[in-house]
Design a protein around this nucleic acid. Structure first.
Length: 491
RNA sequence: CGGGAUGUAGCGUAGCCCGGUUAUCGCGCCUGGUUUGGGACCAGGAGGUCGCAAGUUCGAAUCUUGCCAUCCCGACCA
């Protein structure tokens, strides 16, 4: 394995790829556009998933599972929806293979053509609403608050590990409500859950906002999002929550009898985050030495590396290490003891830095004599000798400090990369020279947004929630505007 | 899907232009030993349908054609 990582300034894209591959998170696979998530990467996803799942359940949701395949006819029932997804669907047309009559191996059996083709889900609104139709009769059946953890397939032209792959893992929440108010409330509640998760657990600050019609989910009335800023100054949509109005209820005839014994269409939401979050995590925090993972979701929070000479000292250090491990585990800290004799301490140090383990403890005979241990933190690379007395508590506090520091650092970066632009020239200059979020006035029309995108590749990431009202003029057209919106080049 | 690049051992590569012994080197891997406070050292060893398939040739990693895959840049997108 090569020890060298590409640096961020040298080639940001390559740096990202190096981290994913060499950090052991994922690999390319034999299938175009698809990746293998390796154990370390999957452990990261499991930690994220488990916490999110807990938060979903705390807000009243339950999990279920719907089919991978969607009859083609379902997809076309909601016009905007099918239009949005049609170009990137994998389609199942046959259900059997056979030996080629000319001996050319195995081929699709032409006689096994499906009467109705099946779409591999790019998202599950249609199959779910087709099901909800049977589940919902009365206002007493509402609200219906269901989430599913699943894989989905979107046949992307160009893929990038974690950020955009043909198949990815995600969760999708699909809820049904009796009133519009309640559905909107749910949409915003889940947006808050996402923001809280990403900020508190991933230590990535996000901006909550609403998408412009151009960027809206296919089939939604309103799409809310959380937007994060990466170290290269590009924005990344980290999660979305949609108020679907009655669009899907109407498309799938989902009505309920209200208290006045009248039929009404239900109101819907859907919301999702994906393994893309792992990409966000990497690009928000990591450095030229490798990954930097926030303690709250790091698969390994503390690694202990023994430094010994000969079997005797190894045994003595092992014994002390085991005490430390026990005390850390008592505090619920995920700890790994690497006393593997096959690699030397220096190699281990570099390896765990590459993998972003937040805290490393190194202990040798010298430390043992002095009743201390060397404590190194990944985020700042500081090293200190710390007394064995109260070590576990020290480490626990340090993990919390690292978590906070990572968030603060990312937040300060975002602040420094968020700039107002009041003229077109200024806007273009900022985009090219500084990047980041640019708050600027926009006249509110799709045409203008489209033109800005064509000219600069920048899109409106969102209109922040609780945005300050401010009279101004559109940077492109000069038409009046009542507020600034956030532009950025994005992933 | 357009433009560019790449494909030789697990990884990184030399060789290719100008065809010709047993395909180069480093890392990693295996065995034994010495080591271990920031990517150890010595000795020995294993590992290859040179991306795939055709073609040209006495002979192809090298030339030709087709295909496949990946990366980068664009259009599309979470």
């Amino acid at each position: 394995m090569s020890k060298e990582l590409t640096s961020r300034t040298e080639d940001y894209s390559q740096w990202y790829n190096d981290l994913v591959i060499k950090g052991g998170l994922a690999d390319y696979s034999a299938v175009r556009g698809c990746m293998v998530i390796k154990p370390y990467g999957f452990a990261l996803w499991e930690n994220m998933r488990d916490q999110l799942d807990k938060m979903f359940k705390e807000t009243g949701h339950v999990n279920a599972y719907f089919p991978l395949f969607i009859p083609k006819s379902f997809l076309s029932k909601e016009a905007a929806h099918v239009e949005g997804f049609a170009k990137e669907c994998a389609v199942v047309t046959h259900y059997r293979l056979m030996n080629d009559t000319e001996g050319k191996g195995i081929v699709v059996d032409p006689d096994a053509k499906l009467e109705e083709e099946l779409i591999v889900r790019p998202t599950s609104e249609t199959i779910i609403w087709n099901t909800y139709k049977d589940w919902i009769q009365s206002y007493r059946d509402l609200p219906l608050l269901i989430n599913q953890w699943a894989n989905v397939v979107r046949w992307e032209m160009r893929t990038r590990l974690f950020l955009r792959t043909a198949e990815f893992l995600w969760q999708e929440g699909h809820t049904a409500h009796a009133t519009k108010e309640e559905a909107v409330e749910e949409t915003l509640r889940m947006l808050d859950v996402y923001a809280a998760f990403v900020e508190e657990y991933m230590a990535v600050p996000v901006i909550k906002g609403v998408k412009t019609p151009n960027e809206r989910f296919a089939g939604a009335e309103d799409t809310y999002c959380i937007e994060a800023l990466m170290q290269d100054g590009k924005a990344l949509q980290a999660g979305t929550s949609h108020f679907l109005g009655q669009n899907f209820a109407k498309a799938f005839e989902v009505q309920f009898l209200n208290k006045e014994n009248k039929q009404e269409y239900v109101w819907a939401t859907s919301w999702g985050v994906s393994t893309r979050l792992i990409g966000a995590l990497i690009m928000a925090h990591s450095d030229d030495q490798g990954l930097v993972l926030p303690p709250k979701i790091a698969p390994v929070q503390v690694v202990i590396v023994p430094i010994y000479k000969g079997e005797e000292s190894k045994a003595a250090i092992d014994a002390k290490a085991n005490e430390i491990i026990a005390s850390l585990k008592e505090l619920g800290i995920r700890v790994k003891y690497d006393n593997n004799d096959n690699s030397r301490p220096g190699w281990k140090f570099a390896q765990y830095e590459l993998q972003g383990v937040p805290v490393r403890l190194a202990m040798g005979l010298r430390d043992l004599e002095n009743k201390v241990v060397e404590v190194a933190r990944r985020d700042t690379k500081e090293k200190n000798s710390v007394s064995l007395d109260g070590l576990a508590n020290h480490v626990e506090n340090l993990l919390a400090e690292i978590q906070q520091n990572m968030f603060d650092k990312a937040a300060a970066f975002r602040t420094s990369k968020t700039t107002n632009a009041d003229s077109w020239d200024e806007f273009v200059k900022l985009l090219d020279e500084k990047g980041g979020f640019i708050a600027a006035h926009w006249d509110g029309s799709s045409e203008t947004e489209e033109q800005i995108k064509e000219k600069t590749k920048a899109t409106i990431r969102c209109i922040p929630l609780n945005n300050k009202k401010e009279e101004g003029k559109c940077i492109l057209t000069g038409k009046p505007s009542s507020q600034r919106v956030l532009f950025a080049r994005a992933y």
